[in-house]
Each structure stands twice: as C-alpha cells, then as structure tokens.
Design a binder for these strands. Structure first.
Lengths: 341, 341
DNA sequence: GGAGGACTTCAAAGCGCTTTGACAAACAAC
DNA sequence: GTTGTTTGTCAAAGCGCTTTGAAGTCCTCC
C-alpha cells in the first residue's frame, strides 16, 4: 500500500492525502478524517526512504559504534544509548548506527553524514586534537559532541562534564584527609576526559607542592581486569600510594579486587575515589565498601544530547551550544584518613 | 555532489557512472578507473535514501530497543549489539534502532518493518506466545529471532541456546554433589528463556523425585539489586536452599553480596551456578569465588544472527532456519558438596 | 560488403513521497 | 454582474538513485 494506491482508493489526489496526513491546514476537516480513517483501515505507512528523499529529513540521529572482533564492548556505550533512546522515543526519532573499526572512525562518520541517512550526528569518545572536528565543521549536518577535544578551539556544540573540576575536588578531599601519595587510574591517554582528569588531579597536588609520579599513573582501557593489573602494580611500588583516583567504577571493580587480594582494607589502608557514570550494574553503594565517587549520569547526558539534536533538526526551541555539567562529589566509605606511616 | 553532477563532470551518463560504481561488467575498465578516480577526488557518496528507494535495499538491519524513562538499560542488549556490529561492519551494513516503550514493542516493530527503512529485522526478548511472531510472519521482511517463543509452532527462523539442557545439566551437577534443596533465581516470568530454564531444572529434580518449592523461585529483572533481594529471601527460609541456579551473572553479583553479608561461604554453605552470557564486565573467573557457569556468548550469537540476516538480504549462501546452541558447563569454585545437615 | 556479435554507452522511466503553482468553486464585496 | 478572496483540490515536477531497452561503434567472418 503506497500513497498512490491510497489516494486512488479515496478518489483523492496524492497531494491532498499527503497534506491531510502531514497536518497541513488547507485540507477540509471532513476530508482529513476520511483519510485518517482509511489509513487506520489499510495500515498504510509512508515509506521513510521516499520521505527522506523528498524532504531531506529522516527523523534519525546517526552515531558510530566502535567495534572490532577483538574489541571489548563498552558498557558506557550502552548506557549512553539508553539515554539517547529515552528522549528519541518521545519524538519518534530513530538511530542509525554505523559500526566501525576504531581506527576508521573519521571515515565512518563521514560516510554516515554524507549518506543522507541521518539528520544529525552524535559524536563521542573524543580525543585531544580530535580529527573528526574539522571534518564535521566542514559538513552541513548538525552535530553535538559528547565531551570536548583538548587542543581544539571550543567553538563546536558540545556537552561535557567538568572532568578537571571533578578530579580536582576529589584530590582536594584526599588531601584534606591527609593523603600525600596519590595514584591515578585513568582511561586511554589520548582521550579528552583522561587528559582533563589528570590535569585536575595535578593542579590540586601542585597547590600543595606535591607531584604525581609517572609510576603512579596508569592509562588503560576501562575494564575491570585492567583495573586489577594497574592496582597490583601500584601496590608493589616501594612507597605505595594511599590515595587512588579512578576514572571509572569499572576500573574500580578490578582495583578493589587487587586491594582485597593483597589483604588491605579499602577506606583504611587505601582510599579510593572513582568517577561514577551511574551505570545500573555498578552502583557505588553496592560495593562491599561503598565507594566515594564523582558522579554524573551518562544516561542523562545522552538524553540531553538527543534533546538538543532533535530540537535543532525540528527547529523547535534553541539550546546553548556548549554545556559543562558539574559532577557531584559523594563521600562514602572508600575514603578515610591517610594511614599513619 | 550527486550522481548527476558527477556524471556531467566526467562527460558520462548517469547510467555509466552508476554501473561503474556498482561493479557491473559492461563498463570499460578505463572508464571505470576514471570514475573511481573522480569519486576519490570529489568525495562523492551515493545518497542512501535514494539508493534505498530505487533498489528496495538499504543495507540495514532493524531492531527495537526497549526503553523508557524508568527502564533500566540492559547490559545484555549492549553486548548483543556489539556482536551484531562486529559482523555488520564487514558487510557495510548499519543498524536502524527504534527505541520503544516495552509495552509498545509489537507496534514499534511493525512500524519499523513497514517504514521501508530496513532490509531485515532482528527480534529479541522473546516471550511465551509472543505476539510479534504472527505479525512478523504476515510481513515480508526477513527476520531472525534470538530465542524462541514457548507455545508457538517453531516454524520461524531463530537462534537460541538450549536453555532447558543448560539448567538440566547444572541441576544434575548439583544433585551429584548431594544437594537436595534448590532455588532458582530467574528472569521475568513471561520470557521464554525463563520458562525453559525452569523446566530444565524441574525435570532434573523430578528424575530424583524432588520438587521445586514456590518459595524457592524468584522471577525478577536481571539486576544485581534484585539478585540481592531474592537471595536474602531464600536465606531466610526455614529450610534454606543450598543449591542456587541463577539466570545471569548479573543476578549472581547481588546474590553473592547477600551470601557474604549473611556470613556464609560460597561453594561451601551455598553452591551457585549462574548462566554466563560472557559479559566483558562480569567474568565468572573474576568473582571472589570463581563462579561455576553455563556459558554461551551473547556476542557470538549476535554476530551469527547478523551473518544470517545479511546473508539472507544479500542472497549469498543459505543458512539453517533454526539453530540451537549447546551451552558449556564450566565448573569453578562456587559449587561444592552439599553441606552436612 | 553486409550480417552477426561483442563491447560500451545512453536516454528515459520509475522508486514513493513532498511541494509548487494552477485552478475550480463558493462566497463576499462593490 | 463583475471583481476579489478564501477554501479545497489537483497535476506535475523533483528528490538522487538504479535499471530497462535501445543504440552506436568496432570487429570478425563468410
């Protein structure tokens, strides 16, 4: 059943039926009702590809999903997608997800944009000097970045959390508790949030004349295994750190296993603050020792970005181009006074 | 840059350029090379919507993502998507994801299929007597179901794991270890896998003349919190169970917290076997007491389904309509002999 | 020298929708 | 009775691609 058949069935032109369906005012209400009735009876649905072709709008957001045979799937991605979805479902938008090898992201994003399949793009996993930004700016597809790109003029639309402040505050708390020896379990070095969190920690330390030793920084994928390995290494250091900042509750999961295996007590021998993306699976309060965290909901960020993107596409309302969300520092049991030497 | 412009630029007809790009044999190799060169220089990409409209094929798989403001995002979904993606990326397929309220799944799936936006559908979270099956059969869009639907003639294409055998085997192991009092921590009651796993357990018990008490069955969402709650209730039963079968490592996570909090020892006081979907975040070997599991990779299932769907769309090769994968029973530390009374 | 083939290329139709510009019909105003 | 204004409807063009059917060119072979 297509528009032509439907209009023949009704003895109307395609124009009139199309307008009746799309809410145009120049259609007699009685006619519109007849059309709607026929749609209900026949189950007619407009062909999206044709609509897209005719209007240039498709009601869809595009994103690139990094994937590869060996590539670990990322819980953060799923959670973010849930946030996007929550908002998209309200506006009858859908997603076009292009899976791509992480090394091929620029090209994949470009393909997606130019394909004419999406109205707007969402971009994540930002790096320092991210090569996708110049590319995106040269295109006419609207986009919003989750995160920022260190080293690039911040003149693009983004939503980020204040990673630097988050880790600055976390470090401050540790300092107040008397900790002097810090370690940082961070995400991959090239990622923007990792850069900023490190800066946040370092500037808090610098204020007290302290310095972060290279041995006490790990940059790894955000998996619990990597957390375990990194923590094991920290614990073997001659002058082992007592204050750990950790970029994810996922890393913390492994880190805490290492602490337990070493027979140490979290919140006494070792204090730890993790960044909490509010993953449903890893609630900080559910850890055997509840975790002190810097918190910001990934899902809420997803919903907000969807809102901005859809608003832009539909031209309803205007939004700030740049948003920087503060994180909350939530103190629980995993932080305590520095142990006496 | 569109096909018309490109062909004018080259002084060729649209036909020839189109054929050159799509690998048709009736194009002079020299001409094809010229076209390809021009594509490289101009960055031309065909408009997908137009291609879709012209060919009826879009190179996309459709799926419905259950979501709602209060709805917990599901790690299993993300992991499955990763599997689909892994395969899709090889064939330059993408996904169209329609977020939908869980109560609206049938309609959402229908919309997605009829929209003409997808070549094939993937369907999950199967229920007993699933209402989506009759609907799907009435459409002409190819689809593959992950799971099965208890109570429906199995004449539709599916990929499932042998849930019944998995839990039958798990129960057998427990029985051999001398356990007599069983409990089941299952997923939502209406879901197909939950039905079959329960059957598997019950038939193993029946062989020994044992019976599963209603108190000893929980049907909940697969979250760690629900696991905690369910286990707490089991532990308060007057004649508390010693053998727990658990439908997910996520549930097990909470369950084990409850066991620990009760001061009991996993693998001694309580034995537990969980089903392991091979989530990267929850490796059974990383639990403080490594978990005995029935294992089947969700990600592998996703990849396989993508393979089947894409194969069907592209008409390359043929695949079995129905596949039933065996799970592996992997014995680790969480199972031990039944405690002496 | 003309028939038959192989090889290339092209103009035009069509996919299903939206939108432009034209046009009846009905009514109001002069 | 003409003109002007709404109101509701339509035919046709166009979105960017693929594909059909036709046709031009160049060989080969009798």
């Amino acid at each position: 059943m297509n528009l032509k058949q439907l209009s023949e069935l009704l003895g109307l032109s395609q124009t009139t039926v199309s307008r009746a369906l799309n809410g145009y005012p120049e259609v007699n209400e009685a006619t519109r009702e007849r059309v709607l009735q026929a749609v209900r009876e026949t189950g007619y649905r407009p062909n999206k590809a044709a609509q897209r072709l005719a209007t240039g709008k498709a009601g869809s957001l595009g994103l690139v999903m990094p994937t590869a045979p060996g590539h670990q799937s990322d819980v953060h991605f799923g959670e973010f997608l849930a946030g996007l979805g929550e908002e998209a479902v309200r506006h009858d938008f859908h997603f076009v997800i292009m899976p791509a090898d992480p090394d091929d992201e620029v090209a994949a994003l470009r393909r997606l944009a130019i394909s004419g399949n999406v109205d707007a793009l969402f971009v994540a996993y930002m790096r320092g000097h991210d090569p996708r930004l110049p590319m995106l700016k040269s295109l006419s597809t609207p986009f919003v970045v989750h995160g920022r790109s260190h080293g690039t003029e911040p003149d693009y639309p983004y939503l980020d959390i204040d990673n630097e402040a988050a880790f600055y505050d976390a470090a401050k708390l540790m300092l107040q508790l008397g900790h002097k020896r810090f370690a940082l379990m961070n995400g991959p070095e090239h990622l923007d949030f990792a850069i900023r969190r490190k800066q946040g920690l370092e500037s808090a330390l610098a204020e007290r004349g302290l310095h972060l030793n290279e041995d006490c920084i790990s940059h790894t994928l955000m998996t619990d295994e990597q957390g375990l390995v990194a923590m094991e290494q920290f614990l073997q250091l001659p002058d082992r750190p007592t204050a750990i900042l950790c970029s994810s509750t996922v890393l913390a999961l492994g880190a805490i296993r290492a602490v337990n295996q070493a027979g140490l007590k979290l919140g006494e021998d070792i204090s730890l603050i993790a960044h909490d993306d509010v993953l449903p699976l890893l609630k900080p309060e559910n850890f055997s020792v509840p975790l002190t965290t810097t918190r910001s909901s990934l899902r809420a960020a997803g919903a907000r970005i969807a809102q901005r993107l859809i608003g832009t596409v539909k031209q309803t309302g205007s939004f700030p181009e740049q948003e920087l969300w503060k994180t909350e520092l939530i103190v629980r049991g995993s932080t305590g006074p520095a142990p006496k030497p």
